[in-house]
Amino acid sequence: MSDEKTPGISRRNFISGVGTAAVGAAAMVTPGANVEAAQKKAPRWAMVMDLRRCLGCRACTVACKAENNVSLGRFRAVIKEKTMGTFPNTKKAFLPLMCNHCEGNKEDGVPPCVKICPQFPGERAKFKTADGKTIRYRNGGTYKRPDGMILIDKEQCIGCGKCIDACPYGVRSFDPFVKSGGDSTKQAVDKCDMCAHRVDNGVEPSCVNTCQGRARIFGDLNDPNSEVSKLVKEHNLDKGNNVLLPDEGTNPHVFYIDPDNLLKTLYTQRKKGKLDHYMDQIP
């Protein structure tokens, strides 16, 4: 810190002055009481999808492709659309899907994709909270960071594909652009990482940034004043019904404001061994 006092200090240094996450810097200088809770632990990042506002415009799908240079043939984020009813009483609805960044079941708090990863638990890693405190966790090919993000370390990944099968939502696929670090004959697994590289720098995920309907709301559930916390409270989203496949016990952290009950009528669980429900196509 002491040698960062010159006025010529760059913004990057400024941003990342404390700990790894620049969000940390932001939180540091955020007023007292509201943040007290958040400062004692890591944030818990979550997404609220307000289905009333989703226009099915696919800006999120494409923004994600661009932000993360996602290869053709697979997606990290998709919109499912479905036409229902009989003319003239026909309806069409849209359902955005992404990795649910599951908390995992009540017993061990480890989501199925992480549990099955042969590389998990790997080495000890440190997560710096907003106020510079350290939380230790185990990394792996796939692992859960203390702020709730389910991430992939492509260096550690061995490309076995077990997590692809273990995810009940089918959001994972092999990245044809990247070899797995653990086995150079295989491709690494890839999926939505909530744009950790942006969030860690204090910027919203790319799909959220571009959502014209503002159907995607991203934020910290541990901050009672965040918009996601308020929405979860206002719409009772934490009762277990407003997430995908609640019976799987995965405890997803993508919540849906769903007045028309689309999660039930529109979502179809992936067929075993197949990922074709996770392709974004306009009929």
Binding site: M1, S2, I9, F14, V18, M28, V29, P31, D131, G132
Partner: peptide, 30 residues
Amino acid sequence: QLTEWESNKWTQQDRKGAEYCLSVQRMFLE
């Protein structure tokens, strides 16, 4: 705001945090 947060940091006996607040103040002043 910056000075208030600095004050909070001192109260929490968080020297690093407080000094960081100070460094931001210094930058903004200068």
